[in-house]
Write a protein that binds this DNA or RNA. Structure first.
Lengths: 145, 145
DNA sequence: CGCATAAATGAGACTAGGTGTCAACACATG
DNA sequence: CATGTGTTGACACCTAGTCTCATTTATGCG
């Protein structure tokens, strides 16, 4: 089983491989972020690592997003939420109750985009898909969030 | 053919039908917005109707969004863009070049959401889909935006 | 018409989320 | 251990939007 520490180590390694320095603020930010598999906001991270500058935390998260290690998604009300990227896909089913994020890439998204090209004659340049769900386990239990 | 004036009149009528007052700031905001079928930002509207208060313009747009007359979508970089709602659907193919918005509802979105429920065992509560395209006519001409 | 009154307005403070600047600092390498 | 570039932190600034509250105004009623 992958622990939070493993996750943080992995991110650290990826940063290093990318030619980035492993500084104290980055280590702390990664450690904090690895403990929140259900997603986090940058302000939350700032509160958890109060001795590091706000700009630094934002820069670290932006770096991780650009490297594809973290993805930024938006909740129903438009508020941003970040979470660890599982792989290279870009589609999520976010549970409104527990915050868990499921991969939706194999549910026909590509097919949908193909249809759009065919039916409208346009060329798809990018897309954003966010699905808000009540996940299987939350359907049976009480809301927590 | 529907002119911009017709559009503004129509919006005005809908507001009135909804029990809202037809005030001068609202009339101007609607007139300005009706002239931008390719979408607009609220700040743009504020610049076009500078004698009306910024809060009022924001309130007017929010009202129109809540009434389903205008929809808020977000561009690839996350910046918000508003445009006149064509109907009750919620899916758009936004041309990155000319800003035109096409309806994508009949391209299999519902089918996709059904698949998600079946494959993940979750209940879909809401979703957001934005597709960024180069529309058919822009594929043949030079970029303008 | 004239009036009452609830709805709407405008100024401006405030919020969230995020970026830009710049002097000071620190990591890794020669 | 010098050196130089990447990184930091403080803080100003930005966009997008909301809230408050005193003032104004559209509209239905008599």
């Amino acid at each position: 089983m992958t622990t939070e520490t493993d996750t943080a180590e992995e991110l650290l390694r990826r940063l290093e491989d990318g030619g980035h320095r492993l500084t104290a603020p980055r280590r702390s930010a990664l450690a904090a972020l690895a403990q929140r598999p259900e997603g986090f906001t940058v302000e939350e991270l700032c509160r958890e690592v109060p001795w590091a500058g706000r700009a630094t935390i934002y820069r670290t998260v932006r770096l991780l997003v650009r490297m594809g290690l973290v993805c930024k998604l938006s909740m129903l009300d438009g508020k941003p939420l970040y979470n660890l990227a599982q792989a290279g896909h870009h589609h999520h089913a976010i549970c409104l109750t527990c915050g868990s994020v499921a991969d939706v890439s194999r549910c026909g998204v590509d097919h949908l985009l193909e249809n759009i090209q065919l039916l409208t004659g346009s060329q798809v340049m990018g897309h954003r898909l966010e699905v808000y769900v009540l996940c299987a386990s939350c359907r049976a239990t009480a809301p927590q969030r």
